[in-house]
Simulated assay, not measured.
Amino acid sequence: MRSKLFPYLRMDKEHFRFYIKVRTALHIEPIVIYNELYTVFVDEVPLLRTVQRWSKRFREGREEVEDEERPGRPITETTSENIEQVRDLIKDDPYATIDELEARSGLSHGTVQRIVSDHLQFKKVTARYVVKHLTNSQKAERQIDRKSSNAAWVAREDPAPTVVRRSRFAPGTLLSIFFKSTGPVLIHSVKRGQTIDRQYYINNCLKPVIDEIKNQRPSVGTRTIKLHHDN
């Protein structure tokens, strides 16, 4: 997954879990970890309950961030426990394919299909993309795009999910983020229309980040600290 705000940042699920592991070791609450990830990756982040579940596992002593291997032949039993397992996997990732659900659950391909279609009665439909900032003609026609790569599991009576897509020329959000190896130090959001000059940067970015570093390192302050700027 790539950050929408910072396209050069790429995270897969193991990277997200490692971040959760480090922040949990620093006694950071799951909701704070989730908000930190959401600030950068927006709707690409794992669900809050996923962050909470992995944080709990790491607090209980788990070390690995990878999914556990499931040895032996795939399970073919359609038990209530297996049904709930597949339901939880779909809640975590409504866009998962049958093959992905099979790999994550350890159940056979046919068992996953039976659970999804017969027991959960889910169907897979393509998400509708609606432009956030519509032109007058688009408002009249309500132009909607569909992309097969965004097919999601929904109950049979539910409509297709709608994903709001920003207009190509919609104003973005500018953030100044200062972080070190253990996580963010300061995240400053620049108000729309604000001109950033030397004095603004000093007052709203440099001074607050220096104060925060001093709070975190009261004995040594900013000694040995080097700031690397990148756009």
Rank of each mutant, 00 (worst) to 15 (best):
His188Ala: 00
Lys180Thr: 01
Gly172Leu: 00
Pro171Gln: 08
Tyr201Gly: 06
Thr195Ile: 15
Tyr200Lys: 09
Ser176Gln: 10
Val190Thr: 06
Gly193Asp: 10
Ile196Lys: 04
Ser167Ile: 04
Ser189His: 15
Gly183Ile: 01
Arg166Pro: 03
Arg198His: 04
Ala170Ser: 14
Asn203Tyr: 10
Leu175Asn: 11
Asn204Leu: 14
Leu174Val: 13
Thr182Asn: 07
Ile196Val: 09
Tyr201Asp: 10
Val185Arg: 00
Gly172Thr: 14
Ala170Ile: 02
Gln199Thr: 06
Lys191Ala: 13
Leu186Thr: 03
Thr195Lys: 15
Asn204His: 14
Phe169Asp: 13
Ser167Val: 03
Gly193Met: 15
Pro184Asp: 05
Val185Met: 01
Ile196Pro: 05
Pro171Cys: 07
Ile196Tyr: 06
His188Gln: 04
Leu175Val: 08
Gly172Phe: 00
Val190Asn: 03
Leu174Arg: 11
Cys205Asp: 15
Leu186Glu: 04
Ala170Trp: 04
Tyr200Asp: 01
Lys191Gln: 14
Ile202Thr: 12
Gln199Val: 09
Phe169Asn: 10
Lys180Ala: 09
Arg198Thr: 01
Phe178Asp: 04
Arg168Ala: 11
Gln199Arg: 02
Ser167Phe: 07
Lys180Tyr: 12
His188Phe: 02
Thr173Ala: 04
Lys180Trp: 12
Ser167Glu: 05
Phe178Leu: 14
Ala170Glu: 05
Leu186Gln: 00
Lys180Ser: 06
Asp197Met: 10
Leu186Ile: 07
Cys205Glu: 15
Leu175Thr: 08
Arg192Ser: 09
Phe178Val: 11
Gln194Asp: 14
Arg192Gly: 09
Phe169Pro: 00
Asp197Arg: 14
Asn203Gly: 10
Arg198Phe: 07
Leu175Trp: 01
Phe169Arg: 14
Ser167Trp: 05
Val190Trp: 00
Ile202Asn: 10
Pro184Ile: 03
Ser167His: 02
Lys191Pro: 02
Gln194His: 13
Asn203Lys: 13
Ser176Asn: 04
Val190Asp: 06
Arg168Val: 06
Cys205Leu: 14
Asn203Asp: 15
Val190Glu: 06
Thr173Val: 15
Cys205Thr: 13
Arg192Lys: 15
Leu186Tyr: 01
Leu175His: 08
Val185Ser: 03
Ile196Leu: 14
Gly172Cys: 13
Ala170Tyr: 06
Ile177Pro: 01
Ser189Lys: 15
Leu175Asp: 08
Phe179Met: 10
Gln199Phe: 11
Ile196Trp: 06
Asp197His: 05
Arg198Ala: 03
Ala170Lys: 11
Gly193Thr: 12
Pro184Thr: 01
